[in-house]
């Protein structure tokens, strides 16, 4: 009997044993856009031994996962695994399938993302996993910080899951916007709401990049027609999202009610993924991430921009 077979048997026995404590099996094809896409730390703690659940940590800080992570979580590196190392692009379908299988993901797995930095890169991961057609992708509400602040346990043990059998689908074009489409929106040739989730000072063009970040665009400001709703608008002080009813109202008051398609962007797409997750996966709106974001748009030649502050790059 191979070790893989043994682990499968163990997993089966474990899952039968667990059925008594779990009322609904998580992978029971929960409809997309259900509020369940956001899981609480309590839920994860209760379901952590469910073999159908695969927990992935995407943190930006090096060594964080290694020095302690949620039991059973697998590390996914944003810079090394979720993007193409050479082209500016997300990883390819083939690389994705390889990565997901290595993490032990099957077609009917429930994937739960969490990470540091307010879940920014975890949300980016969730977006990429949705693009390649995974059925059940969730985000741990409050991310790593909340889990730690709750005093929940971490481990340094690395799990080595058996290879999964997930089949990646063709990239879902309805989740990702490229420059030509964004330009159409900017020129009012397409009726889509643009949400700029950067800080007010980046939006107005007072600064070229948020403090602590390199200035990677040589124009400041925002895409014409965009509405500025900083990503922080959606969260409580502890990093968790505000209640669904509350955020629905807040965004509706700012003009984002889901009645028309939405494109979100930021500097490189990671913070935008955070808002994307909320609007698309929690509120059920039709949302694309423009991951080229300001570092592409603000550097493009001949595109219209809006720069209320009137700053000019290179001139103090």
């Amino acid at each position: 009997m191979s070790t893989k077979k043994i682990s499968r048997v163990v997993a089966l026995v474990a899952s039968v044993a667990l059925l008594s404590s779990i009322t609904t099996a998580p992978s029971q094809a929960i409809p997309k856009n259900d509020t369940q896409t956001l899981v609480s730390a309590d839920w994860l703690a209760k379901n952590i031994n469910d073999p159908k659940i695969v927990v992935l940590e995407v943190s930006a800080e090096e060594g964080l996962y290694e020095r302690g992570h949620i039991n059973g979580a697998i590390k996914v590196s944003w810079t090394k695994e979720l993007v193409d190392p050479v082209n500016r692009n997300i990883l390819s379908q083939a690389s994705f399938q390889k990565l997901a299988r290595k993490a032990g993901i099957d077609n009917d797995s429930t994937v739960v993302f969490y990470g540091d930095n307010n879940n920014w890169f975890a949300a980016w991961g969730a977006w990429v996993f949705n693009i390649y057609g995974l059925n059940d992708v969730r985000l741990l509400n409050g991310g790593r910080t909340k889990w730690e602040k709750d005093g929940r346990p971490l481990t340094t043990a690395v799990s080595a899951p058996a290879l999964g059998d997930v089949v990646a689908k063709k990239a879902d074009a309805s989740l990702r916007a490229f420059l030509p489409e964004v330009l159409k929106v900017a020129k009012k040739q397409q009726n889509t709401a643009l949400v700029d989730i950067r800080s007010a000072d980046e939006f107005s063009g007072k600064i070229f990049a948020a403090p602590g970040f390199q200035e990677l665009a040589i124009r400041a400001g925002h895409i014409p027609g965009a509405i500025n709703i900083p990503w922080k608008t959606a969260i409580n002080a502890d990093g968790t999202f505000k209640s669904t009813a509350e955020v629905r109202k807040i965004y509706a008051n700012l003009g984002i009610d889901g009645k028309k398609p939405i494109i979100v962007y930021c500097r490189i797409g990671e913070r935008a993924s955070h808002t994307w997750f909320l609007l698309s996966q929690v509120l059920g709106y039709d949302v694309k991430v423009y991951d080229g974001s300001w570092t592409e748009y603000g550097n493009s030649v001949g595109v219209p921009i809006s720069n209320p502050a009137g700053t000019v790059w290179g001139i103090a």
């Binding site: 090096e62 060594g63 290694e66 090394k80 340094t156 043990a157 690395v158 080595a160």
Partner: peptide
């Protein structure tokens, strides 16, 4: 062994 169980890749142990 705990931080980077697989040394066959090009990765280095963190930090």
């Amino acid at each position: 062994g705990m931080y980077l169980p697989d040394t066959s890749g090009e990765y280095l142990p963190p930090g």
